[in-house]
Design a protein around this nucleic acid. Structure first.
Lengths: 139, 139
DNA sequence: CAGTATCCTTGCGGATACTG
DNA sequence: CAGTATCCGCAAGGATACTG
């Protein structure tokens, strides 16, 4: 849990964040980052990471609660940024397979520590919220 | 760039993602994760990480383009999840200072690799998008 | 200075029905 | 099977004005 990472360690590296956030004219960086935070992207990346090549319906079956529409949208935006590779076999009935690109795998690798940390500390977050809400009820 | 991380390495760790995404009744985990991906949260966390304790207006000055309203909202939600500590000195004129909590620093630590990776590969993402858009123009 | 209050636009996410 | 096409509610994000 304790990373024995001093504030100085963080600062040394995190200057990149500042620089990167500023000159992002087209917003690409922020949008790639958004893949980490939105409803389905991480789930898709993870599913493809674990199971390899999958068809549309197979992904949907392995994820909880995605609609067909949102899955399509998510896959499109991931494909656009090169994180997911789409292969259309042009068959009838249609067969399309999705797999994680090298890039997508790299993102997954870097997301795992964060997600693990969140899961481990979920109770702490919940508690913090309860305290906050209690404090702000009496206003 | 090459992480020499095999697909197996990733899978070993990333099972947590799957488990964590499923039984998240109140959505706390996903919402904490969202701090990583939304417009301003990461910027605030980074700014407080670099500069330490800051007042509302000082944060705004150091970030590019945040409105007062969005900064307040962002700070509130971060405070609620215990990532940021708010200290109100109850003075007049008002003085309120914000700083990163231990928890917030831990998130920042885990965000730095992702952000660094995104910044380094931004050109690749841009290129991927152009190819994608070109492909899908001819439809 | 550190906020609220108000109004507005945009896009996310979901439900449902339809198509090649 | 792998999508589109519609329609919808909701929250993010922004502009502007006001307050203790």
């Amino acid at each position: 849990m304790n990373q024995t990472l001093s504030r100085e360690d963080v600062l040394r590296y995190s200057q990149t964040v500042c620089d990167g956030l500023r000159d992002d004219d087209d917003g690409v960086r922020r949008e790639v980052l958004a893949h980490a935070g939105n409803r389905w992207s991480l789930g898709v990346i993870h599913t493809l990471g674990v199971y390899g090549r999958l068809r549309h319906a197979e992904i949907q079956r392995r994820m909880h609660g995605v609609t067909q529409r949102m899955l399509t949208r998510t896959l499109r935006s991931l494909e656009r940024d090169g994180l997911v590779i789409r292969t259309d076999f042009n068959e009838n009935p249609p067969r399309v397979e999705y797999e994680l690109s090298e890039s997508g795998l790299e993102l997954l690798v870097r997301m795992v520590p964060i997600w693990t940390w969140i899961v481990e500390n979920a109770d702490g977050f919940r508690a913090s919220r309860e305290r906050f809400d209690a404090r702000n009820d009496g206003d």
